[in-house]
């Protein structure tokens, strides 16, 4: 059973909003004067206000499926209630295969046009092939044994590290105060940072002259980002610099 946590409504909040949650759950709109008198009473009768749950797709109400047997066993040991909860269906792209990678799937979906997923998958496969080629060349070009060991040859690892390196910590959001719009630095959630990093990588990959394929440029961008170099990393640092310059506006996030 999962229900939204209750928010305690203060008497001040009630007076300001003139909104009273009656015992039967109906909201009554009362005048401020009346509110003043009734505040104490209301505080006693209804401290808890509940929020109605959002309407969601049916499978989002269920527990998400897990594809690793050991992880499932750990989950069952930690939360015995899991045995009594419904589990959503495994989606078409999900499986216990060693080749299934949620982040890569997300990236593939982001480079996709008009639902042509097969084409997007093919592009990613060829991009990984290019990465492999470039890294193999690098590997064979180096003569020093220790330097040779340091060359990363796994394209999937390069991809993950590249996205991780491109994640911004802060972002700018326009907030209007006194008729002027300020670019206010705010902290970014992990999911949003991940999305931004992937978007920047894709945009950098698409910025190329004709005759050069996306799969070649994205390969170069991923390798550059993996080494903390390149346009995307510069873009991240630029954003951080901008945030640093605008830090005087940071208080606009919460103040007027």
């Amino acid at each position: 059973m999962s229900f939204p946590t209750a928010s305690i409504v203060t008497s001040r909040g009630l007076c300001l909003a003139s909104l009273i949650c009656s015992s039967s759950g109906n909201s009554l709109l009362l005048s401020d004067a009346f509110c003043q008198h009734r505040t104490a009473f209301i505080r006693n009768i209804s401290r808890l206000r509940t929020r109605t749950p959002k309407k969601v797709y049916w499978f989002k109400r269920m527990a998400p499926p897990v594809f690793d047997a050991t992880e499932i066993q750990r989950k069952l040991e930690e939360t015995p209630e899991a045995r009594f909860m419904k589990v959503g269906p495994a989606r078409i792209h999900e499986s216990s295969s060693a080749f299934y990678d949620p982040l890569l799937n997300k990236f593939t979906n982001m480079i996709m046009f008009k639902g042509q997923k097969e084409l997007a998958e093919e592009n990613m496969r060829l991009a990984f092939e290019n990465i492999k080629k470039i890294q193999m060349e690098k590997y064979h070009a180096t003569t020093d044994v220790t330097a040779k060991m340091r060359v990363e040859l796994n394209p999937l690892k390069i991809f993950h590290q590249a996205v991780e390196n491109c994640k911004p910590v802060l972002a700018l959001t326009p907030i209007k105060r006194g008729g002027v719009t300020y670019q206010v630095p705010v902290s970014v959630r992990d999911k949003t940072a991940e999305w931004t990093a992937m978007k920047w990588l894709i945009l950098a990959g698409r910025e190329h002259e004709h005759q050069i394929h996306f799969r070649e440029t994205i390969a170069k961008e991923l390798i550059a980002a993996f080494q903390n170099e390149g346009r995307v990393i510069k873009r991240k640092y630029d954003l951080h610099k901008q945030c640093e310059a605008n830090k005087a506006y940071a208080h606009y996030r919460w103040s007027r």
Partner: peptide
Amino acid sequence: LELMRQAGLLTHDKR
């Protein structure tokens, strides 16, 4: 069986 259920193999996708 429980493992299969947790992996979402036994839930019918009714969409």
